[in-house]
Simulated scan of single mutants.
Amino acid sequence: MADLQPHSVSKGHVADGTVSVPLFRHVMACLDRAPQAMQILHEASALASLFGADVTAIRVLPGRPSNSPCADPVDWELTRREEIADLRRLAEAAGAPLGMAAIVACGSPMACVEQEAHRRGVDLLALGAGAFGASHRWGLGGTARHLTETFHGSVLIVPEEAAGDLPRKRRILVPMDGSPSAEAALRYATAIARSRDAELVVLHAVSLSGLFGLGDAGQGTGSPWREVRQEADRLAADRIRRLRRLLPLDGKNNRVRRLDDDEPRRALMKAICEERGELVVLSARGLGQDPDLPVGSTADYLLSRAVTPVLLIRNTEPSSHRSTRQAPRRLAETWRAR
């Protein structure tokens, strides 16, 4: 696995032998007036600084589409200037770079963000769980979910629970299932942990109850079930050893935590709550390869119940985000378009 060093990513690249892998080049923070807006911009600026990326802040005001003239151009211009001034004040408080671009648009939040992100070549979108609207207690708001599923690059989600919460431990959490995409996400997490002098914790959930199609009714103490369980435990132990070898050697507190005897998604969510890390780095897709799902089932489960900022890594291949215009869309969207 390529090892990301903070100094090697400061210009947006990392050396992997003779291969130079482009990382984030442009981060866009979607900021309404929600309490977590400052934290969204702070997290976005920190990641941009680490990966040598540009930063843009965007605020969308409700109204007609941005390509249509507003009812009162003078009133709109005054409003736009006030909002940009507010974004500048927020940027100063959040420690954003001086060269941050500020955009105020009028229209549909989804359309405005997608249009500006595409125009500026954004490959990391940072937003709140209830961006430009109300979020649900268990789930993303409509705009946040739409952008998470359709945006072609990576997404940083900051939940409402994270705003004003007690300081979390300097700890970066990485759920891993052994897939190549999860290992690629670990590279990003390693660089972030090093830059913040944070502990890196890999979470690996092992499901013994659902092996080979066996549910709870298939469990028992007989010899066949015991052999299945022993084989599963051996495979899990081998994977844990491999995950430990992937951890950087210079992090003395880095560790792998094995999660047993629970449904994997619930076990991961429970561990994230227990660890109280400051950031979860998660691959958008894992071992599941359903092309009709824009986000894997585990990633969707954790995003919908996030209690700490989650960085959803998408398009981790060497060609980076720019080789792909967007994530796969659901079949339902295809039917609605007919």
Rank of each mutant, 00 (worst) to 15 (best):
W138E: 08
V206G: 04
L208R: 09
M28P: 15
D290R: 01
P248E: 02
G130P: 12
R330T: 06
A29T: 06
G133S: 11
T334H: 15
T56M: 14
G52I: 09
V307K: 11
S45L: 01
V21P: 07
T18I: 10
G251P: 01
C112A: 15
G218H: 09
A191S: 15
T221E: 12
L166C: 07
S283W: 06
N315W: 02
P224R: 13
L282R: 04
D260A: 08
S66T: 02
E149H: 03
C70R: 05
T190Q: 13
G218Y: 08
A134H: 07
V307P: 04
E274C: 01
A37D: 04
R242G: 11
E275M: 11
A184I: 01
H42R: 04
L166V: 14
D238M: 07
V19P: 02
L214S: 11
H146W: 10
G95L: 02
E149W: 03
D300L: 00
D75L: 05
S10T: 03
G121H: 07
S181T: 03
L166R: 14
V281E: 13
R120C: 10
L268P: 01
A306Q: 08
H13I: 14
Y188P: 03
D260S: 10
S154Q: 05
G142S: 15
V201P: 00
G210R: 08
M28K: 02
L87S: 13
F212L: 13
Q39M: 06
Q5A: 14
I157W: 02
L208Q: 12
G178A: 11
S10Q: 15
L293G: 01
V158W: 01
L90A: 12
P65V: 02
G141N: 13
T143E: 14
V60F: 05
E231R: 14
D216Q: 14
R168Q: 08
R285N: 05
F51K: 14
